[in-house]
Design a protein around this nucleic acid. Structure first.
Lengths: 154, 154
DNA sequence: GTGTCAGCCGCAACTCGTTGCAATAGCAAA
DNA sequence: TTTGCTATTGCAACGAGTTGCGGCTGACAC
């Protein structure tokens, strides 16, 4: 009988980048452990950004024995594979971008506490300015820039 | 005989913004304590940026009993007075700008680990882009933007 | 000089994140 | 299925930063 769930190695392209994670990890001589599986399951249910603290909490819901150090180490590994990318919120805390695609940045309003995205077009203006004037190739997504939104200033 | 060291209250303008710190603190109903004096002494000997950890260490050199919580609380107070301004390094750690004057930002090169300043003119391009496109009034000095310098990419 | 009172200090405990180390357990080969 | 190598885990300890609380003390009034 046909198996309901085989994974990416069966010829066709993977449905999600997460499907290939286990194989990619093993391909590097690394190991696919229950702890890593749990974290990947948690991540594939989310989009956008998550704090490390939240990820640890969600892993704990599934597996009480989850320890922070394992989660942080696994996140480093997933970052090497390009599946997540770490950054820092306005207060310097860790934040992970899940499946980072487009170049974008984040703005935090110190007035209302909301977070806004810098769209790729706007990000390009900033990246170009620093490239042409200083020769610097910046990664806008690594930090959250603070300021005041239109509704909170003036 | 003329006194060699009187302070700002003697009619003429203060030589340094630090000279008025004690009076400004007291004027707000707050207190000028030995711990605050020590931190101000440490700060007035430095320029540019310092990490909180370094400030704590330097205060400890003068007064073994200095505790971190007092230093952090005093830094918050000095920030309210505009004498320092906190930000975050590339790794999210606290960094204090001493006597912040010009609008400038910081770049960190993930290749060589060096830190560079974004000059006011370049900063203006970025601030203007976000103001005109998103109505956001950003504070570039709050975080350190990561990237690769001219020598480390390409 | 003395008293009063609220602001401040130091402590202890906590959160977030990192690291060294001994023990466990993937996974591939036999 | 068993063996053996080593990547990975969990622990414990640490560094950075924050917070609540009881006691101390600066600053003002008398």
């Amino acid at each position: 009988m046909p198996q309901p769930e085989t994974n990416a190695s069966a010829g066709e392209a993977a449905v999600s980048p997460w499907d290939g994670a286990a194989d990619r990890i093993r391909a590097g001589g690394l190991r696919w452990t229950p702890q890593r599986r749990t974290l990947v399951e948690v991540l594939r249910e989310r989009e956008g950004h998550v704090t490390a603290t939240e990820l640890i909490a969600r892993c704990r819901e599934r597996d009480q024995t989850t320890t922070p150090s394992t989660v942080y180490r696994t996140l480093d590994l997933l970052e090497d594979l390009g599946l997540v990318k770490h950054g820092h919120g306005h207060d310097g805390r860790e934040e992970y971008h899940i499946l980072p695609q487009q170049v974008h940045g984040h703005l935090y309003c110190v007035g209302c506490g909301m977070t806004w995205e810098i769209r790729p077009e706007t990000a390009a203006v900033i990246v170009d300015a620093l490239a042409s004037q200083l020769g610097f190739d910046v990664d806008l997504s690594h930090v959250t820039i603070s300021g005041r939104c239109a509704g909170c200033h003036g």
